[in-house]
């Protein structure tokens, strides 16, 4: 039995609480659990393309698994499978009942179950990527689910996105501005985006990327390598 943590009135119903500060979702293995990185951002900004690139870049050097949160069942997971960047047993799809942001923020249980299932099945892992379903600029990951989050926006909506802000753009540990190859076509000014991102994010890093050109997502892969190295 856990110790009583607060004063109970004599006529109060008997109950006990767990010790505060105890992580209710412990890793299943003794060692440090995998670094969990959330990848969020609006629909079609390139989240799955980024996951695929990271699997290509890091799949050899890190023990890696992916959880996808589709609006529909397994679209993203199927993409990763088709592209052969990760074997099937390393990918899990979570259904989100019309509310992709709920599954990564308010009720993270299905995602935690998926991560735990992967760790249990595959043994200790170094890195788990959790891709959120495409959502809006306000969707962010709960810290109960992930350690660090990447927010992916693209230039095709114009250069105003960083200026609009929102929790994803302002607070993500890494902001990725993707599809820079399209900037000239949509008249997006990357220097404006860079300036606005700095203003919103202060010291937090932002990278520009074209996954069409950089199939290894080099700056993002390097950022993750740094995080993994810092943990051991």
């Amino acid at each position: 039995m856990h110790p009583e943590l607060h004063e109970h009135d004599p006529d109060e119903v008997p109950h006990t609480h767990p010790e505060p500060g105890v992580d209710p979702h412990q890793p299943l293995h003794g060692g440090p659990r995998a670094l969990r990185i959330g990848i969020g951002g609006p629909v079609g900004s390139g989240k799955t393309a980024l996951v695929a690139a990271l699997c290509r870049a890091l799949g050899e050097e890190l023990r890696l698994a992916v959880v996808t949160n589709d609006i529909y069942t397994t679209e993203d997971a199927d993409f990763l499978l088709r592209n052969g960047v990760l074997p099937e047993e390393r990918i899990r799809a979570v259904e989100t009942g019309c509310c992709p942001h709920t599954a990564i923020r308010d009720d993270i249980s299905a995602n935690l179950d998926a991560v735990e299932d992967l760790e249990e099945k595959l043994g200790p892992l170094d890195l788990v990527l959790v891709e959120s379903g495409g959502d809006n600029l306000t969707a962010t990951f709960s810290k109960g689910l992930i350690d660090q989050q990447i927010f992916v926006v693209d230039v095709s909506g114009g250069d105003k996105v960083p200026r609009k802000g929102g929790p994803g753009v302002t607070t993500a540990d890494l902001l990725v501005i993707n599809k820079t190859d399209l900037a000239p076509m949509v008249g997006a000014d990357l220097s404006v985006m860079d300036r606005d991102a700095r203003a919103r994010r202060h010291d937090l890093p932002t990278v520009f990327l074209s996954l069409a050109e950089d199939k290894q997502a080099t700056p993002v892969a390097d950022w993750i390598r740094g995080l993994v190295a810092a943990r051991v």
Partner: peptide
Amino acid sequence: MSLASLLLLADGRLPSGGHAHSG
């Protein structure tokens, strides 16, 4: 019984996976 605890348990916002099920 504790009415407040019952309300917690019955609250749709309890993070217990229910939102992804349509029953």
